[in-house]
Write a protein that binds this DNA or RNA. Structure first.
Length: 312
DNA sequence: ATCATCAGCCCTTTTACTTCA
DNA sequence: CCTGAAGTAAAAGGGCTGATG
């Protein structure tokens, strides 16, 4: 995304770039929602000696094709600290099995991995002492888990028909809590979870895939909102700067008119910040300066204090 | 070094199901 | 109560990548 902040003579209107720079699947894989994002501001000429790998070449082409030859300046807009995850987890301590390969690797291992031997009693296929089913039987007479079970069984029997399986609330909640701890699963975790929930490993895998997709979608929405606000802020700032620039230009025009008159030296008292003027020689060739406190611009050749707006 | 295979992931689409006007 | 549109979630399909033989 590109945000334009124009400060020059011919301000360009803001222009959002619809298409993203090409991202390789590998980069997609590496990217994570908590890593923040950037906004590009185009305000300058290309810097010589910049690295030009393939992607940058592609990006450069994109800018050029849009008629904008300015390379972007990146602004990090998101806080670098990821939003802390709420870990009020009723299922904390799910005994995550770790694969043979990930010993010492914490990416998928639960911090509480060996804490408990908590077991969910779903009994989808067994029925028997299913707490959730008993509760649901009492509440609405519908045994959601058994529905799910029977559908799954149908699918197993028919094979060809794709029956929609609705996961029970308990299954969803447990998967959700698992996802909070690890948004990806290693094969052992997947198998353990599937066994625990009486689901097929493929179902667990698919559920995690879809869950990641939902997370990404939500994050994209959040990012979008944030960028919108940033854009509004920058637009307002741009408007303010444009206005200030116009004022200064107008001031300079007036100033050039007064340049025709005999020069006057303006000085600002550093302590009281008042501007005073002293008349220069009649030759008029000597330029004088005063400092606009507000803008830091140099103003030359001001006439008498009576007509000078900064004078007291 | 190159190729084939496999597993895992992401993205997109399909489809079953739910909700609501 | 019925119905159809809209929304949601589970699942499938295809493409890509890295690991392995």
């Amino acid at each position: 995304m590109e945000l334009g902040l124009s400060l020059g003579d011919a301000p360009k209107p803001f222009r959002f770039v619809e298409k993203q720079p090409p991202v390789t699947p590998r980069q997609r894989r590496i990217s994570r929602p908590d890593l923040g994002f950037c906004v590009d501001l185009s305000i300058g000429r290309p810097v010589a000696g910049e690295k030009e790998d393939d992607e940058e070449k592609i990006n450069q082409r994109d800018y050029e094709s849009d008629g904008n030859e300015d390379p972007p300046i990146q602004l990090d807009l998101l806080p670098h600290n990821p939003v802390p995850r709420n870990l009020t987890n009723p299922y904390q301590g799910f005994p995550w099995p770790s694969s043979e390969n990930d010993e010492g690797e914490d990416r998928t291992a639960s911090p509480n991995s060996a804490a408990s031997s908590f077991q969910m009693e779903f009994g989808l296929y067994g029925g028997g002492g299913n707490i959730s089913c008993q509760r649901e039987q009492m509440e609405n007479g519908v045994i959601e888990s058994e529905r799910a079970s029977s559908r799954a069984s149908d699918e197993d029997e028919n094979g060809s028909t794709r029956k929609k399986l609705r996961l029970s609330k308990e299954q969803s909640a447990f998967l959700e809590e698992s996802f909070k701890e690890h948004n990806t699963l290693n094969p052992k975790q997947k198998l353990a979870l599937a066994k625990q929930l009486n689901l097929r490993p493929r179902q667990v895998e698919v559920w995690f895939q879809n869950r990641r997709a939902r997370t990404k979608l939500k994050q994209t929405e959040v990012d979008c909102e944030y960028l919108k606000r940033c854009c509004e802020t920058l637009t307002e700032e741009n408007r303010r700067l444009q206005k200030e620039l116009q004022e200064l230009r107008a001031l300079k025009t007036t100033d050039s008119f007064y340049m025709q008159l005999p020069a006057t030296t303006l000085t600002m008292c550093p302590s009281c910040e008042r501007v005073t003027s002293t008349s220069a020689g009649s030759s008029g060739g000597k330029s004088t300066e005063a400092v606009s406190k507000r803008s830091g611009f140099a103003i030359t050749g001001r006439p008498s204090s009576s007509s000078f707006p900064f004078s007291a």
